[in-house]
């Protein structure tokens, strides 16, 4: 129940700044439109029907979905956590009878609800994944859930840098650049030469590129399994990292005596 309140508050905060929310969506929409028109021109002048197995209509959906995903997979917890460390309020939070990480999961979820609704609608309307049998549907949902968890954990792991870094704001442009380039937000990674095909298993691509392709029905059951496998692998790696750094971080934090 107490976590549900966290989730609700996060949603309320997003809505309270509804002007900012709308403008944020508008910004995204503008960027998506620009990319879409550019790609349509590329299709038009190259004379190709498909590029990397993607038709022009599918490319439009791809770009919309991947940008919504970029909104869902926000890096906000990093800055929140850094704020707690800097202000010394982390001690207060840690003394409360709740698990900070569980709380931060619900907060993450709550904040993203408006975007998740958009994502859900798009999925429901255009995605073929629920017409391919129960197994495909279930494994798709599973992959989405696992990816969501993996990304939050990765962001959490990165946020632990706050124990040692004085300023974390530079992470914001770095992460958005990474999502743009490695997450497939600027273009699907499949259009790159084959030598770069390994790139699709980086965590940003798993969250952006792969989930979008899944939604477009471009992933076979095998590919879902492989993607899921990589996601799990990253999850484990990030969990280990968190375990290792958390205790050291806390020790250096308390050492400061804030």
């Amino acid at each position: 129940m107490k976590y549900w309140v966290t989730c609700q508050n996060a949603l309320l905060t997003t809505l309270a700044y509804r002007g900012n929310l709308l403008l944020h969506l508008l910004t995204t929409a503008i960027n998506v439109l620009v990319t879409i028109f550019m790609w349509l021109a590329v299709y038009n002048f190259s004379g190709r029907v498909t590029i990397a197995g993607i038709q022009s209509r599918q490319m439009v959906f791809y770009l919309i979905v991947v940008n919504v995903l970029a909104l869902i997979f926000s890096a906000e917890p990093i800055f929140k956590f850094s704020g707690l460390v800097r202000s010394g309020n982390l001690s207060v939070v840690l003394m409360r009878p709740i698990n900070y990480f569980v709380q931060s999961f619900w907060e993450y979820l709550g904040r993203a609800i408006p975007y998740l609704i958009v994502y859900g609608l798009v999925t429901g309307i255009i995605s073929p994944i629920f017409h391919r049998g129960l197994l495909y549907g279930v494994s798709s949902l599973l992959l989405m859930a696992v990816t969501y968890g993996m990304f939050l954990l990765m962001i959490t792991a990165i946020s632990l840098c706050s124990f040692w870094l004085i300023q974390v704001w530079p992470l914001r442009p770095v992460l958005s650049a990474l999502f743009l380039l490695l997450g497939g937000q600027a273009f699907p990674l499949q259009v790159l030469p084959a030598a770069f095909s390994w790139l699709i298993y980086n965590p940003f691509s798993l969250a952006g590129n792969q989930l979008t392709l899944l939604l477009l029905g471009k992933l076979s059951l095998d590919q879902i399994a492989i993607t899921g496998g990589w996601t799990m692998l990253w999850t484990v790696a990030v969990l280990v990292l968190i375990k290792l750094t958390w205790h050291r971080g806390i020790r250096s934090y308390e050492g400061v005596g804030s």
């Binding site: 700044y17 900012n20 403008l23 910004t27």
Partner: peptide, 19 residues
């Protein structure tokens, strides 16, 4: 409370950096 408004010209100019 509409500080995001300030981003509009930048978005507009980014979107305009195309033929």
């Amino acid at each position: 409370g509409l500080t995001a408004l300030n981003g509009i010209p930048e978005d507009l100019m980014t979107a305009s950096a195309r033929p």
